[in-house]
Design a protein around this nucleic acid. Structure first.
Lengths: 205, 205
DNA sequence: ATTTGTGAACAGTTTCACAGCG
DNA sequence: CGCTGTGAAACTGTTCACAAAT
């Protein structure tokens, strides 16, 4: 039985939420208070994982968490990512500690301005975008973090898709056109604000 | 008749997409190719706006776009925002041009480290977080961009909610607890990557 | 001929309510 | 007795298919 999209989005956040409760138990009621999803939704979501780890005294967080990590693919370590575009946003990610202790690992950066790739320093190598395909295929990079200018966004996206990238975290304002096998997650500040403003927030991501 | 959440999220992106087609017409088929939503979904979404602006020769982009802006609340200019947390992420937004020509306007920044609020320069004033409530209420700020450390995230969120903020763009990894009248949009890199990895992307935001 | 707009069928998701377990 | 796990009902969202419009 496959897990619905909505459920998956909540489970990603549930997994995060549970970090604070390791070794303990937690009830669906408590999760409702913390995350805002109804207790009924929480119970249904968890039941879709196909395990029984609650049974009348709240869920055992450790069991739940390890099942979540497997189901959500987060158990696989060292999933490779790259940054495409080393302007202000891209640079702020260069020495970010955000992905420490996560399954994700940034292993390359790219910019079409060779100056930047030569001057900037980081723990992973920086390349000109002409090498995009080569490096991605060689390193088997799965995810791209797109932080380029508007005018380069779609053409670089095309290249990324051609070299087999699985997903793109899109920090640009462009609505990217991608083949169906590539997933895009739009996270630009403008999109986020517009989404809030339009009252269009899914109760999750 | 109220517009469903899913539709709203797509309409936000549709509005963006249409910028490239001002003065022209566009068919639901073309939108399907560009954005990836089925033409049937596109037509249904647009019909929910309650206007007829297509009639057999594709949609008139200008008419469609102005209706979209009204429906999505994006017509109201100068909706005030603030940045909470002036670490690396917050700083990268200080002189960002991303919100230029948008209805949103950053009018204040906050950090609990007074050093930062005194040393950093920006076009809008920077305050210590002790002034959070005062400034937000005085300036009638609607949206907060949360870029603080993990350990401050929930307590500052509580304060933000108390002073009447409408929505929070959450760059932290925390799952924030908020009252039902406050909306959160999670945009941390880690959450974005986990969502992609779990295959949990709504066909929109 | 092409493309919208929409009823009607279908699919997916949430809520309700309660039996059963600890 | 409180809490999960889950059928069944209710609701929301999507797809189909075609009449109407130009």
């Amino acid at each position: 039985m496959s897990i619905p999209e909505n459920t998956k989005r909540r489970l990603v956040l549930l997994n995060r939420l549970l970090s604070t409760f390791e070794g303990k138990t937690i009830t669906s009621q408590k999760i409702e208070e913390l995350a805002g999803w109804s207790a009924a939704v929480v119970r249904r979501d968890i039941s879709l994982l196909g395990i029984i780890c609650g049974a009348s005294n709240g869920y055992k967080v450790d069991e739940l968490k390890s099942k979540l990590e497997i189901t959500l693919n987060l158990a696989a370590k060292n999933q490779k990512c790259c940054i495409v575009g080393l302007g202000k946003t891209g640079q702020s990610l260069l020495d970010s500690t955000e992905l420490e202790d996560s399954p994700f690992n940034i292993v390359a950066g790219f910019d079409s301005n060779v100056n930047r790739t030569e001057v900037l320093r980081s723990v992973f190598p920086l390349h000109p975008t002409t090498k995009l395909c080569e490096v991605i295929m060689e390193e088997k990079i799965r995810y791209a973090i797109l932080t380029v200018n508007h005018d380069e966004a779609q053409s670089l996206t095309n290249t990324l898709c051609e070299c087999g990238i699985k997903g793109i975290v899109n920090y640009t304002q462009c609505v990217l056109t991608v083949p169906r096998n590539v997933k895009v997650k739009n996270v630009s500040l403008l999109t986020a604000l517009e989404t809030l403003c339009a009252g269009a927030i899914a109760d999750d991501c």
